[in-house]
Design a protein around this nucleic acid. Structure first.
Length: 569
RNA sequence: GAGCCACUAGCUCAGCUGGUAGAGCAACGGACUUUUAAUCCGUGGGUCGGGGGUUCAAGUCCCCCGUGGCUCACCA
């Protein structure tokens, strides 16, 4: 804790000023105020004549503060080196970065100026005309100029400059600000909006109030929080300091909201099924175990909601979806968190072909909602706009290995040998189903960068999927791969109770031969099927991975607010 | 679970073959009424992740432990 701040707190208490206020009238978020007076540029390429006032180094290039002859300023992001105090014709793409009008990809231009900073400002930064505002936020910067003080307040939606003049707020208030306010404090201000001569939207403050004192120092303003350990364990600091992080979680919220809208629009009903389950089935994964004192029995945190949702289809709900967490007791890495969010949905009278179309419609909807239809990854530009490629599981395998379906399903010894040659560890001890999966991973997965539906999986990999109508050894199932990651998994649901019982039995046998992740038998589910489940298709989409895709981040921990971390001793 | 790498001021980072622990921002004192990574002058700040060892001397070399990252294994 900061000693000086503590002292300020004590002094304030002595003078009977409340340091932790109860409320403040603040009808708008900061972004709503900015929205009124700031138009979004359309990313046109422009050329302006400007003088470079300051050059600041970034990790990747420079930021320039450039000014017109009349003194209006804007920022320019560049990779080229510019000399301060020189005048250039600068071209770049007009956009808004960190709330400020900026040129991106700026460079020295041989073209004549086609506009001026003054004209641009007039068009996109409107005159607020001294509107009265009352607004609260965290003080994130404070620059004292003697008898005037500039600062910035920030809320989750944005940042706004404040300007405190001694002869406007009065000697007493001004001294209070000088003596007691620190960067990090939560404050409320009342004042009127104007633009400074460099054009920044600013509140000229006539009243200012300390609402909450911050005792700890804030993270550094320029570099933000980089230490991933602090980012994950103290996410609030990450959210205060890093705009990029705020953006990711806003995007996540947008995506989940869009999913709900999309399902609601398509007449799906949202439900909740148990997280504490007596049998952890519906997927192949190891569960967390917990204990219920009253029932005197072990319970599992669910690894999938699948079987419960299908029971609801039996119960007559024609279309259901659930957005919620699954828990899997497995390793943690950049694509796996022990608890993760999925949407699972089931529709009676549909089959997996209908789901392919439906999934494409869903992506169309997400593209519209997020305004993102392409992502630039290290694997190249991924185009998220449907329609997507459709490819058969065994055809892809055959393309890469020149071995056919028969080889994989009926020549186990040779398959083992082949797997060994591919470098798959412990090839001789793995069960056949695992081997096929592994070979697929080793040979095909790397090429699945653009969105691809892989269809028609082998039956032995899919104990809950319906047998393929044209091939008894396959099931009607697809997985959607994007950027080498599985994003969705879907199938025509198996609704023959006897077949289902048989498949569970096969899983049991696999478990007996050492496959720890083989699926648990759920007799209640088989019982439900005996009452008749209409033909149904179902799908699960990993929301964390979906957000990773749209946000273009590499680690699942960057899209989960509080990812799993080890306890610090 | 295995291998490699990292951990230094509140934050971001320097610190070579062992020789009195550094910078920028933040903080503290001062100047400045349109600044904006403000500027200018001055000041304080450290169990170098923890523990042990080698040495006249360890942030630096060795061993153990902790946390994290990457790769692999496991897994969606």
């Amino acid at each position: 804790m900061e000693e000086f701040r503590k002292k300020k707190l004590e002094e304030l208490a002595k003078s009977q000023k409340h340091v932790y206020k109860y409320e403040f009238e603040s009808p708008y978020f900061i972004h709503e105020i900015r929205e009124k007076y700031e138009k979004e540029p359309r990313k046109d390429k422009i050329v302006v004549k400007a003088t470079v006032k300051r050059v600041s180094k970034l990790d990747d290039g420079f930021v320039l503060r450039i000014a017109s002859s009349s003194g209006l300023e804007m920022l320019a992001y560049t990779k080229e080196s510019f000399e301060p105090n020189k005048t250039y014709n600068i071209e770049g793409i007009l956009s808004r970065v960190d709330e400020k009008l900026s040129l991106i990809d700026a460079k020295v231009s041989t073209n004549e100026p086609n506009t001026t900073i003054d004209d641009i400002k007039k068009e996109f930064d409107l005159d607020p005309n001294f509107e009265d505002v009352s607004i609260a936020g965290r003080l994130v910067a404070l620059r004292s100029m003697g008898k005037a003080i500039f600062g910035h307040i920030q809320d989750f939606s944005g940042k706004l400059q404040i300007y405190i003049k001694k002869d406007v707020v009065g000697d007493e208030k001004f001294k209070f600000v000088e003596d007691f306010l620190d960067v990090g404090d939560i404050i409320g201000v009342k004042g009127k909006l104007f633009r400074t001569h460099t054009g920044e939207l600013t509140v000229e403050v006539f009243d200012i109030e300390l609402l909450t004192k911050a005792l700890n120092n804030m993270p550094e303003k320029w570099h933000g929080i980089k230490d991933v350990e602090i980012k994950y364990r103290q996410r609030y600091l990450d959210l205060i300091a890093n705009e990029s992080s705020r953006k990711v979680f806003v995007l996540r919220s947008k995506i989940i909201k869009a999913l709900r809208e999309f399902f609601d629009k398509n007449k799906f009903m949202e439900v909740e099924t148990p997280i504490l389950q007596p049998i952890a089935s519906g997927a192949t994964a190891r569960p967390f175990i917990t204990y219920h004192n009253y029932l005197e029995s072990e319970l599992y945190l669910r690894i999938a909601p699948e079987l419960y949702l299908k029971k609801l289809i039996v119960g007559g709900i024609p279309r259901v979806y659930e957005i919620g967490k699954n828990f899997r007791n497995e390793g943690v890495d950049t694509t796996h968190n022990p608890e993760f969010t999925m949407v699972e949905f089931y529709a009676a009278y549909w089959d997996y072909k209908k789901l392919i179309k439906f999934t494409e419609e869903l992506f169309d909807y997400l593209i519209e909602a997020t305004n993102i239809d392409k992502v630039h990854t290290e694997n190249g530009i991924i185009n998220l706009k449907p329609p997507f490629r459709v490819a058969k599981f065994f055809e892809l395998l055959e393309e890469k290995t020149s071995k056919d379906k028969k080889f994989f399903l009926h020549h186990e010894e040779e398959l083992k040998k082949f797997a060994q040659e591919l470098g798959i560890p412990r090839a001789y001890t793995l069960p056949k189903a695992k081997l096929i999966e592994k070979v697929f991973e080793y040979t095909v997965e790397d090429e699945l960068v653009q969105p691809t539906f892989i269809i028609d999986f082998p039956k032995i990999l899919s104990p809950l999927a319906k047998t393929h109508r044209e091939d008894d050894e396959l099931v009607e199932r697809f997985e959607l791969y994007i950027n080498k990651k599985e994003i969705a998994n879907a199938y025509s649901e198996l609704n023959d109770p006897e077949d289902q019982a048989k498949r569970f039995l096969e899983q049991k046998l696999q478990k007996a031969t050492g496959d720890e992740e083989a699926m648990e038998t759920d007799d209640d589910f088989v019982e439900a099927l005996k009452y008749g489940m209409p033909p149904t298709a179902g799908e699960g989409i990993g929301i964390d991975r979906l957000v990773m895709l749209f946000a273009n981040v590499d680690s699942i921990r960057d899209v989960i607010l509080f990812p799993a971390t080890r306890k610090i001793e």
